[in-house]
């Protein structure tokens, strides 16, 4: 730490010493370049929102509120209700997060706190490798390997839980094929694990040594140290990782389109086929025209809005939690 501090200080000293007009010019050029980069991202995002909304307008105007509140998607009858797709998107994202978050945090803790240093790089590389697998490969693997093999597992789960009140409905019925909400959630969980893991891992690595040592000094076990020092310190980093994972899950298209079953319905039964916003856009856009196409673009806008709302909600939650912790410690 001190070495780094010294280096930084000497670096800043040399910068101060060289405080000449050319140096200041470089600084201001850098500042405007950075501002431009940030501005371009916002501008692109804004333009996407504006053009998609404009292209989707015929569908919004024709359907009104029933675009989001109706679950009737009938192209032949010109009825474009997207509720069943929104439901599917939220359900599979929730399943993915429920599975991926505990696993990712576990992996990240394992890598930062438990693995011997010389094995660490290898473990990290393997997890990062997972994130470089193209999503279509996950999709094809899901459709050709996972879906056929997993129906037996689903049948066992549903018969084992047949006596439990709520779970009885959620996991009921013999699945016809392995293409279902649950399979899609499972595949998504595998896809978002590397993202959540790498963000949380970076966060855990920033927990000050002193804070950990203090916990050990008070007689904490490894787990108590993690619970008392690492996790509270990393709260916002974990949320950021989860949000990134959620963003990937909600927008993932090809893998979901292949394994969800493409049968729009709102049901509590996770082993039945469903459909999701992104999958419908991918499946149906190619042959669409007119209001039908506008409705599909509108689903893109809807995805955008859902992501915004959920991430704003999560950030507000974490801000509140942080304030509360701050108040407690005072």
């Amino acid at each position: 730490m001190t070495l780094v501090d010294n280096e930084m200080r000497s670096g800043s000293v040399s910068l101060l010493a060289g405080e000449s007009p050319p140096g200041r010019r470089t600084d201001s050029v850098f500042r405007s370049a950075a501002a431009l980069a940030a501005g371009v991202v916002l501008l692109i995002l804004g333009l996407i929102l504006v053009t998609t909304t404009r292209n989707a307008w015929p569908a919004f105007a024709e359907e009104g509120l029933s675009f989001v509140t109706s679950s009737t998607w009938d192209v032949a009858g010109a009825a474009f209700g997207t509720l069943a797709f929104t439901y599917g998107t939220l359900v599979i994202s929730a399943i993915a997060l429920l599975i991926a978050v505990p696993v990712s945090i576990g992996v990240a803790l394992f890598v930062t706190e438990m693995v011997p240093k010389r094995l660490r790089a290898g473990v990290v590389m393997l997890i990062d490798l997972l994130s470089s697998v193209p999503s279509v490969v996950f999709g094809l693997w899901g459709i050709l390997v996972v879906a056929p093999a997993i129906t037996g597992v689903y049948t066992n789960i549903s018969s084992a839980l047949s006596g439990v009140p709520v779970l009885r409905t959620v996991f009921s019925g013999a699945p016809i094929s392995g293409r279902s909400f649950f399979t899609a959630g499972l595949i998504l969980a595998i896809m978002i694990t590397p993202i959540i893991t790498s963000i949380t891992r970076e966060t855990f690595a920033t927990v000050p040594r002193a804070q950990k040592d203090a916990a050990y000094a008070l007689g904490a076990t490894n787990w108590e140290m993690i619970r008392g020092s690492v996790l509270p310190f990393s709260r916002s980093g974990i949320v950021a990782g989860v949000l990134l994972g959620f963003g990937r899950a909600i927008g993932e298209t090809i893998a979901v389109a292949l394994v969800i079953g493409s049968s729009p319905q709102i049901t509590q039964r996770l082993f039945s086929s469903g459909d999701a916003l992104s999958a419908v856009i991918a499946n149906q856009f190619g042959e669409s025209t007119g209001t039908y196409q506008a409705a599909l673009i509108g689903m893109g806008v809807l995805l955008f809005v859902i992501t915004l709302v959920i991430s704003a909600f999560a950030r507000a939650m974490i801000a509140r939690a942080e304030r509360r912790i701050g108040a407690e410690s005072v």
């Binding site: 009737t72 998607w73 032949a76 094929s177 049968s263 042959e287 669409s288």
Partner: peptide, 27 residues
């Protein structure tokens, strides 16, 4: 009715492309 996508009853299976439908029927 008739169109490139129709409002199929819930609970049916769906495949991507002719090959996808054939694969589901086969299995």
């Amino acid at each position: 009715g008739t169109d490139k996508v129709v409002n199929w009853p819930a609970g049916q299976q769906a495949g991507n492309g002719n090959a996808g439908v054939a694969q589901i029927i086969e299995s």
